[in-house]
Amino acid sequence: MEIAVGYAFAWLVGKARRVAGRADAEVDRGLDAGMDRLHELISVKLGDDPALQRAREEAGAGLEEPSQRTRQRLELALEDAAEHDAGFAAALVRLVAELQMAGPVDTAADTGSSRATGGGTASTGVVRPGGAGCGTATAQHTGDATADGAGSRASTGVDYS
Rank of each mutant, 00 (worst) to 15 (best):
E2S: 15
A4G: 08
G6P: 00
Y7M: 08
A8C: 14
A10F: 10
W11Y: 14
L12R: 11
L12A: 11
G14R: 12
A16G: 09
V19Q: 12
R29P: 01
R29H: 11
D32C: 06
D32T: 03
R37Y: 02
R37D: 13
S43D: 09
K45G: 04
D49K: 08
Q53E: 14
E58K: 09
G62W: 01
G62D: 06
E64G: 15
E64C: 06
E65A: 15
E65L: 15
P66M: 11
P66R: 10
P66C: 10
S67Y: 04
S67T: 15
T70M: 07
Q72V: 14
R73P: 00
R73C: 09
H84G: 10
G87H: 09
V93H: 12
V93T: 12
L99S: 01
L99M: 07
A102T: 08
A102P: 00
A102W: 07
G103D: 02
T107C: 02
T107D: 02
A108L: 01
G112V: 06
S113I: 08
S113D: 15
G118N: 15
A122C: 05
S123P: 00
T124G: 06
G135E: 02
A137I: 05
A139Y: 02
H141F: 12
H141D: 13
H141S: 13
T142W: 00
G143V: 04
D148A: 15
G149R: 02
G151I: 08
V158C: 03
